[in-house]
């Protein structure tokens, strides 16, 4: 178990890493950045596993199962939509002949 001070230290350092890493992202990719970071914020899902994994069905378990559903939508949807976006960023030679209406 970590004490509160350790967690706060980790949090503070992580904020600094975030600050420097995010400024390095090119503005052209700000939309994918948002949807990737959105997807990884679905990491809260692991906070629901223990309560959802107990044997007896009670309100705690039900709430945790719902939490897993929503976080899972966030994770899968977020990564999938980022993949779709990033797949469209192409270099000149790779650009397709027919820009057909994709949906």
């Amino acid at each position: 178990m970590n004490d509160w001070g350790t967690l706060l230290t980790i949090f503070t350092l992580a904020c600094f890493i975030g600050y420097f890493v995010i400024w390095g992202v090119t503005p052209a990719l700000h939309s994918p950045l948002m949807s990737v970071s959105n997807a990884i914020s679905g990491i809260v899902i692991i906070g629901a596993f223990v309560a959802a994994g107990q044997n007896d069905m009670n309100e705690t378990k039900i709430l945790s199962i719902l939490a897993i559903v929503f976080a899972s939508i966030n994770i899968f949807g977020g990564f999938a939509v980022s993949q779709r976006m990033l797949a469209m960023f192409k270099k000149k030679q790779a650009s397709n002949k027919t820009p057909g209406e994709k949906r």
Binding site: N2, F11, A14, G18, I43, V44
Partner: peptide, 28 residues
């Protein structure tokens, strides 16, 4: 929100990831 949950569950990964996402949103 993930950071706070990380503090309450004593989970380092939630804290780090949440901090990254938080920084991203704030900077944007």
């Amino acid at each position: 929100a993930a950071v706070s949950i990380g503090f309450s569950l004593n989970n380092v990964l939630l804290i780090i990831t949440g901090a990254l996402v938080g920084a991203g949103g704030a900077i944007l």
